[in-house]
Each structure stands twice: as structure tokens, then as C-alpha cells.
Write a protein that binds this DNA or RNA. Structure first.
Lengths: 373, 373
DNA sequence: CTGAAAGCGCTTACAG
DNA sequence: CTGAAAGCGCTTACAG
């Protein structure tokens, strides 16, 4: 196709309007066209807004408006411009737009882990929401490390993000100051803040842990243990709630194995081994996530321990295998996708300067009771 | 801290050099400082290269060079500039840099699925490689749909990416033309192209399928079936190789259930159900990925089918559960992380204009033989 | 509703 | 090794 087109003169200060006839003779609506021109000077070779303007016989400003706020442009011009944009294959230069407007349409997102399916679902929610609004996002993985999180945010700052979506509410004070100073809003996910200046979307990690304890107690388990990896603040809050429940019921809250290493299925098997060493008559385990829970189940199978009669298991997050395993694993269902979607929504609302009714959005959780308890 | 600082005059055309003394009196190396100034005009409030230049008593160009190609700048100036950058907290404006240089330091990445752990590992490899080199990347999910892939690439084009990392080699011709036209290089992952103009990093999907067939045959299975979801081109190539192996050995290559829906653990159970319906005496299944394989294993457990004596299972990719399940699942180990890392490396090499020795990098695969066969 | 001018903060392409 | 000028392609802030 490109081969059959003819070259439009590149726009100059004088040829894109004032005398419409002048331009129409060279192309106008009938013959809008353009070949891949060799780069001239510093130009990139991409079609620019000025070229579109010339071809549509309007000013660049009108093209800009036709794209960003069409309601400000006459229908007739709008149509003409749309046709030209299509024919020339014009794609706005985001860098130029960002530089001129100080709005990048980029959001920085930081999650602790990319290999954890939990956060992938959240990213999907974020993408679905931001995508609709025409935003891009940069994804960073902090590896559950606050310093790494700060470092990522610093890097992203160069891209002048319009806002951030962060995980957890334990960010360093210096980071909060830096964001505030630069007037970059942030929404924090997966936990709820008591500070009404914070925008948070999540659920009560502590209550979730508490409800797990209640379920074990109601089913009559006597020595439930807590198994955790990574030991990030959210897992520790689950633990807190779990302990609270056990203590209230007069059970021993100190049966636990905590390892500050990444969570894997394999590690679940190891943690079960550890707790059985410590407490041979342990009859139930709360795993701070479903990876561990699956590993525990596999290890029970290998040891010939019947689940749930000899060992009950509760996981966290309801990852895909929880409902499919044998027996299916009781777990806390978390609103992972919604956390992402709604956090993104809240951020966009803030960016548009709209009033925020609720700065703290509790999406709750649910206990899915299945065969493992 | 900010409160104790004093305001540096904003740079103007005349105050950043020529007469060093003039500037030194106002700050210089001793008192470099800056408060959060109210925005003036269109400025963003962020520290600019010109402000750094003023404070360091050099021209903006020298600051630019000190950052991008320090070897071109005197050691003494370099040190002075580094100090100022640190004190003022200068972060280069990426949009301005991109606009001026037509280099964005952004790479567009498109994978079929974000919920598939396979591609997450690849993204991790990409990030590790690009991160070191100071590149950011935009991640898109095509949902295994070529149109969606093209659409994503169009969107990314607005950000003027320096290059693309794409999955598979089946991109639409129009897309290839568009990338070539805009002089944006792309490396394709997870498959190998015969065209030496293509840059590809992956392995032979067909050979992998073939090696699965060989393993079943060597173990004496008589009626191996192929179970697949999604039916993307790579799965279909595995199938091709698998069929080739069966045909060579005189076995029936037509035992298969193919469903063009997303792959899940749950679906694996369904596919096993289907194949047993079709071929009750089927004695082995090759699942086009490990999600399906785990679902098959779970379903075998529910049906009381002993694995591998009554049903052998081979998966694909060696996802974390394959080695942990009971029995552990035989699977094809794929170099997922390396594919990402090396594809990114190849792209960077191309961007730097370095000679490419090999346009097609075969990273191979491995069959991990475990209890399920 | 439309446009002319200026400017965003860098880097290119020269010049010395 | 360093700098002055011009320009990248948009949008802001005015003016009409």
C-alpha cells in the first residue's frame, strides 16, 4: 500500500492554514497520503500532529482537541480529522504529550512478587481498569523488600507517573513524603489503613486469620498450628488474628513454624515436617497461603496421613488448585482481582480530582469450607 | 529537611555560567539547596537539568553528558555534578529525553497470558536483563489472540518503544511490516524461525512433542492420547511432533481431545473424562501443559485410577507442582526464564547496533522423568 | 469553536 | 573536553 501513495509536503509554519486552497490543491481529503520519507534532521519519521493538521487543513491545536476533547470541536472538522488520522496512521507521540502537559498517563505499580498467582490476578484487575481509561502501567516487583520498593519508585519517577498502586501499608516514611512532595497520589492495596489520608483497598488480614481460628475451633480441632513463609506484614497480621482466636478459646497459640523464605509448594511439605517434629499430635494447620497448603496436602499423602481426620488444612487465597485437590482445600477466598480493579478506579478518581467518598475500601473475604477440614 | 533549605534562583539563559563567581555567591558547592517551589508557569516543580547545571556551574549539556557518557566529561566536573544531582534529588525527565532523542528506553512485551506461570518466569528473565540496562517495559497480554496482539502493539507505539519482545512467530504480516517500517526491532520468543531475518529465542516445540511420544513408546504404553486446551500454535506443534512419534512406532495418533478454551487444572479433569469416554482403554496422556496434567492426576485419584500403572501422565513446562505431586509428574522442562533473559539480551544487542552472530537461538528442552510414567 | 505563540526539559549537531 | 543554538511534537494559556 505504502508504495502507491504520494508524498505530502511536510508541514511548515505557513502551509497548514490561512489559505485553505493552497493545501487542498496538494492533497486535501481526496489524496491524503504519505510515503515513508527518509528522516529529515532530527525527525523520527513518524506522522506528527502537524502533518495531520496540514492534511486536514486545520491547526495542530484543533487536531489535539479533536483527539482529547472532541466535544470542543465542530462535528465537520472532527470527521475530517478522523479520516486523516486513519489514512496517515497517526499515533500521538506520548513523550511530547507528557512533556507538554506533565501528564504521562502512566501508573507505577509495585507488587511484592510476580511469581505469586495472587498478585497476577490483581495486576489483571488493574490492567482491565486502567486499560479502559487509556493508561499504561509499569510493573515492579519488590521481592517483599521495602528498600527495593523505594528504589523502584525512584526509577519510575523518571517516567513522571501520574500515580502509584502499591502493596501493603508499611511504606517507609521518606517514601510517603517523597510522593506527597511530588504530588503523586498512591493507592495502597491488600490492607486497610486507619489514617484517612491514606487511600487503601483491601480487607482485614487480622480478621481473616481470626475466622480461620474460629473455624478450626468450631470443628473441634484441639491443636491447630500456624505455618508461614516470607513473613511479610500481611501474613503476620493473619497470624495475629489467628492467635487471638485460639487464645479466646483457650487453645495454645504458640504452635507455629515461621520461615522467612519465599513460599513454595515444596516448602509446605517441609513446614509440615517441622511442625510434626515440634508437636507430633498437631491436628490442624493454617497455611498462610495456598502454595504451602498444597505442599502440606502432598506431604500428608506421602506420609499416609488422612486429611482431614488426622490432619486438617486451611489455606489462603483460593488459588486454582485448592478446589481441585483431593480432598479439596478449605481456604480464605480473597478478592484479588477486585482489589486491583477497585484500587485502580480509586486512583483514577483521585487523578481526575473527583471527590473520594471512602478512602478506605474494605472488600472483605470469605471462608470456603471444603474437604480438608 | 526541605524546610531548612533555601531557594536557588531558577536558571535563566544567563545565569548558569560565563561568570562562575556570580553563581557561586548564591549557592555553589557549599549551599546547594532548594525548597519545594510553587509551580511557576508550566513547570512541573521537579528539578531540571538546567537547575543542576546552574548549581554546578556548567552548561546543561555537560550535565547531560556527565549522566549519559561520563567518559566525555572531566573527572572534576563529573564529581561536582554528581554532588549537585544528589543534593537536589535530580531525576531526569524521561519524556523530554525521549522526545529529544527518539529513544524511549522502553521495550514493549507481549505474552499470551499473565495467569500462566510459564510467562511469568519469562517476564522475570526479561526484567532481570532489561533492568540492568536501565530499560523499562510495558507488558501486554494478548489472550492468545493475534488481533489483540496487534492492537496492543499499536497502543505501545505511542510510547515509541525502542523494541518489542513478542511470543510466537505467527504474527500478522501487516504487523511485521509496521514494525519494520518504523524501524522497531522485535525478538520473538518460544519458537524458532527458519527465516534468518527473524530474531527468535526458544526451542523446537515439535521436537519436544516428539520426545514425549518416544518416552511413552519406550515405556511400552500402547494407547497414548494427547490432551490440549487453548490450541495455540505452539501446542499444535507439540501435537505434530507427538503424532509423528506415534506414527513412526505404528501407534494410533488420533487419540486426542482438543478444546480451544483456556487451560486450567479443572479442565484437565474434564479432558481425562472425555478421553476415557472416547477411548476407555487409553493408558497414557500427554497434556500440553502442567495445569492440565495436575488436573488429570487429581481426577485419576478421584476415580481410583493408579498412576502410572493404569494411567501414565506427561505434562509440559515443569511448573512447581509437577515435582511435588504424588506421584511426581513427568514433564518437559522448558527454559522459560532463559528465554526471557536471552531474548532481552538479543534485543539490546540489536538496539546497540552490535553484530548478531545467531538470529535463531535454540535453548532446547529436557524431559524430566518422574513417577507418573 | 479555532488558532498563534510560547514553552515543557531534554539531546542533536555543530562549533570551538 | 565544553557550550550555544535549535529542535523534538505536543499542550497550555491566551486571544479572538
Amino acid at each position: 500500500m505504502a508504495k502507491t501513495e504520494t508524498r505530502m509536503p511536510r508541514a511548515t509554519e505557513t502551509n497548514y492554514n490561512v489559505n485553505p486552497a493552497k493545501v487542498n490543491k496538494q492533497g486535501g481529503e481526496a489524496g491524503i497520503a504519505r510515503v515513508m520519507a527518509p528522516r529529515r534532521g532530527r525527525a523520527t519519521g513518524r506522522v506528527t500532529i502537524t502533518e495531520v493538521a496540514t492534511a486536514a487543513n486545520v491547526s495542530p491545536m484543533t487536531v489535539s482537541r479533536a483527539i482529547k476533547s472532541p466535544e470542543l470541536v465542530q462535528q465537520k472538522l472532527r470527521d475530517r480529522i478522523a479520516t486523516v488520522i486513519k489514512k496517515l496512521g497517526y499515533v500521538p507521540n506520548q513523550a511530547a504529550s507528557t512533556l507538554a502537559s506533565s501528564k504521562s498517563r502512566v501508573i507505577g505499580v509495585v507488587v511484592p512478587s510476580l511469581t505469586n498467582a495472587v498478585f497476577i490476578d490483581t495486576l489483571t484487575g488493574i490492567r482491565d481498569c486502567l486499560g479502559k481509561a487509556g493508561y499504561q502501567f509499569l510493573i515492579g516487583e519488590s521481592g517483599y523488600c521495602p528498600d527495593k520498593e523505594s528504589e523502584l519508585i525512584t526509577t519510575y519517577m523518571a517516567h513522571a507517573p501520574d500515580g502509584f498502586l502499591l502493596t501493603g501499608i508499611e511504606q517507609q516514611e521518606s517514601l510517603r513524603v517523597r510522593l506527597a512532595t511530588n504530588n503523586v497520589p498512591a493507592v495502597r492495596m491488600y490492607d486497610l489503613s486507619k489514617n484517612s489520608n491514606d487511600l487503601t483497598v483491601g480487607f482485614s488480614q487480622k480478621k481473616a486469620g481470626y475466622s480461620v481460628a474460629r473455624h478450626f475451633i468450631e470443628r473441634g480441632y484441639k491443636r491447630p498450628a500456624f505455618l508461614a513463609a516470607q513473613l511479610d506484614p500481611r501474613s503476620m497480621k493473619r497470624r495475629e488474628g489467628f492467635r487471638k482466636g485460639l487464645i479466646e478459646a483457650g487453645l495454645n497459640p504458640n504452635l507455629e513454624v515461621l520461615l522467612a523464605v519465599p513460599s513454595t509448594i515444596e516448602l509446605g511439605a517441609h513446614l509440615l515436617d517441622q511442625i510434626l517434629h515440634q508437636t507430633p499430635n498437631c491436628d490442624a494447620v493454617f497455611c498462610c497461603n495456598d502454595d504451602l497448603a498444597l505442599g502440606v496436602l502432598f506431604e500428608c499423602q506421602r506420609r499416609g496421613l488422612s486429611v482431614p481426620t488426622q490432619m486438617a488444612i486451611i489455606g489462603f487465597n483460593d488459588l486454582p488448585w485448592a478446589a481441585q485437590a483431593n480432598p479439596a482445600i478449605t481456604t480464605i477466598v480473597t478478592p484479588r482481582y477486585d482489589i486491583g480493579y477497585i484500587a485502580a478506579e480509586l486512583l483514577l478518581k483521585t487523578l481526575k480530582g473527583r471527590a473520594i467518598e471512602k478512602s478506605r475500601i474494605d472488600l472483605g473475604f470469605e471462608l470456603a469450607i471444603r474437604g480438608s477440614t
